[in-house]
Design a protein around this nucleic acid. Structure first.
Length: 496
RNA sequence: GGCGCGGUGGCCGAGUGGUUAGGCAGCGGUCUGCAAAACCGUUUACACGGGUUCAACUCCCGUCCGUGCCUCCA
């Protein structure tokens, strides 16, 4: 395993801590996955790209990462439905489809979007519906520990009792008294099951299903379904064991979801389940938060096709990925056409420089300190995965590459090899970017053909037949290629 | 109302108690038959009001604004 100085920001302590997993070289990482009842949207892009880079970097450092990300396909109530219907069940009835058909459909489209964004699939992607027995078992464990109670067929976690001996709120910074008074101020909530609870803070770990509820399972307490926080506790425990190293998710999940995960896990096992809690920040759109009520929710597919009133053009999946990586994961990030267009251009410039790196010839001496640059790249990644700074350093490398081409900067063969290796490592392996344009399989044939045309154009220029040379250039450009005239002849690249 | 996070130049976005972020856009130059590209140089900053300090964009307090949570939405 590589020596490193990786520090990660731990929400639990609100500080950056040196990363030291429980049993190196193994690292367990759990990230809250999607609820598959709708198309993947922009809000899905950020957490999964963030933790994709985290897993890529950890693996690069030599860790054996087991990355677990769940598929939520069960048991969550519809926000605006007073009957407490299962979200997936409701959609199924509306569309006249089997619930599991819906689940499969949106799981597939989620996977498609993730693949397009360049995310490596997790090691294990367990589904909540596939872990009902384990969830029933954990409910029983919490009951046995005396930290939950049954009420009318449902089982609720007893928050106030748990809080007597545990710090409920340590992750989110909530104070129990504040929560109570805040809820009193809000008045009595009319949500289903409120009267069954001893305290409004208590949350369901097993919920009795209404008669019309489609997705339901037998349990010792009722025909019903597991509570909304339970699956993550159960599946992270099953595949990573408590305590495990990293738990990730969006900042919006801090409370109550992750706070409840800690409470449940501790109640059931006596073990504080997670060492490092990592939270990515939210995305805004033209400075406003996204949401259905704002009419600015955009599906990922709409980004990729440009088919949305707020989008002036299509943005490729890599442009979205690049743009997200231009900001630090703990900052809010604002999406706008202007910002995405600038990201698209910047990314193309980066790729163009990298592809031209292969043509650079080594020199007898070096005028650029490659090793120092490499060290800086590692230093910024070690500082809580600062991809924004890494990209700044990579644009420094773009400048260096261009100077190498012009002969203004020189590198020895050893330095050049190191430089090439590390530029490729950071851009493609760690940031997970892909040069989509260069993916076509007949790259070499195209290169040969265009170079032949450039030769003809050069001949025309030498005989001052500019009409012909310009015609060749215009035709090539019309096909989507740019002609770059340099001191040592012409080269070409694809137009962004 | 409570808890948390943030307000950086035309736009996006890093970072720091005293020294260049970076990208996109703009401007000037080199190169070029012209153009593009590339390269060089360069203009616009740290919400507002106090305070601490030799020194604050960076620390503290207040105000305003944005945002997340306080809802069985994961």
């Amino acid at each position: 395993m590589q020596e490193h100085n990786l520090h990660v920001y731990n929400t639990l302590t609100r500080t950056k801590e040196k990363f030291e997993p429980f049993s190196p070289p193994f690292v367990g990482m759990y990230v809250c996955g999607p609820t598959v009842y709708g198309d993947p949207h922009l809000g899905h892009a950020r957490p999964y790209i963030t933790f994709d880079v985290v897993s890529r970097y950890l693996r690069h450092l030599g860790y054996k990462v087991r990355y677990v990300r769940n598929i939520t396909d069960v048991g969550h109530l519809v926000n605006d439905a007073d009957e407490g219907e299962d979200k997936i069940g409701k959609k199924a009835k509306a569309d006249q489809l089997e619930p599991m058909e819906i689940v499969q459909m949106y799981t597939n489209s989620f996977h498609d979007a993730m693949r397009a964004l360049g995310n490596i699939p997790p090691s294990i992607e367990p589904s909540a519906a596939g872990h009902i027995p384990e969830q029933i078992k954990m409910v029983q464990e919490i009951l046995d520990a005396g930290l939950a109670y049954e009420s009318n067929g449902s089982v609720y976690f007893d928050v106030e009792k748990y809080a007597k001996t545990n710090d409920y709120g340590k992750l989110s910074g909530k104070v129990l008294e504040d929560l109570i008074s805040s809820q009193e101020r809000e008045g009595v909530r009319n949500l289903d099951g409120q009267s069954e609870k001893r305290s409004s803070l208590d949350f369901a770990i097993w919920k009795k299903a209404n008669p019309e509820h489609i997705m339901r399972w037998e349990s010792p307490w009722s025909d019903g379904f597991p509570g909304w926080h339970l699956e993550c506790s159960v599946m992270s425990r099953k595949y990573l064991n408590f305590p495990f190293d990293i738990h990730g998710g969006g900042m919006d999940l801090q409370f109550p979801h992750h706070e409840c995960e800690i409470a449940q896990g501790k109640a059931a096992t006596g073990i504080d389940p997670v060492k490092y809690w990592m939270h990515n920040n939210m995305i805004t759109l033209d400075g406003k938060k996204m949401g259905k009520s704002y009419g600015n929710g955009i599906n990922l597919d709409q980004f990729f096709t440009g088919d949305h009133p707020l989008l002036k053009q299509a943005y490729s999946p890599m442009t979205v990925r690049f743009y997200i990586l231009m900001a630090h994961y703990r900052s809010t990030l604002d999406f706008s056409n202007e910002a995405l267009q600038s990201a698209q251009k910047a990314m193309q410039r980066l790729f163009n420089a990298i592809s031209s790196l292969n043509d650079v010839k080594p020199s007898g001496s070096s005028t650029f300190n490659v090793q120092e640059w490499v060290n800086e790249c590692y230093a910024v990644l070690d500082d809580d995965f600062n991809t924004a700074q890494l990209l700044a350093l990579l644009f420094e490398s773009v400048k260096v590459i261009n100077q190498l081409k012009d002969g203004q900067t020189k590198l020895t063969e050893a330095d050049l090899d190191l430089f090439k290796e590390k530029v490729n490592l950071f851009v493609f392996d760690i940031l997970g970017l892909k040069d989509e344009e260069a993916q076509s399989g007949n790259q070499e044939e195209v290169d040969g053909l265009i170079k032949m045309l450039l030769k003809l154009r050069q001949d025309a220029k030498l005989s001052k037949d500019y009409a012909t040379s310009d015609a060749i250039r215009d035709e090539i450009q019309a096909l989507g290629f740019k002609i770059l005239d340099g001191k040592d002849g012409s080269s070409w690249e694809r137009q962004s």
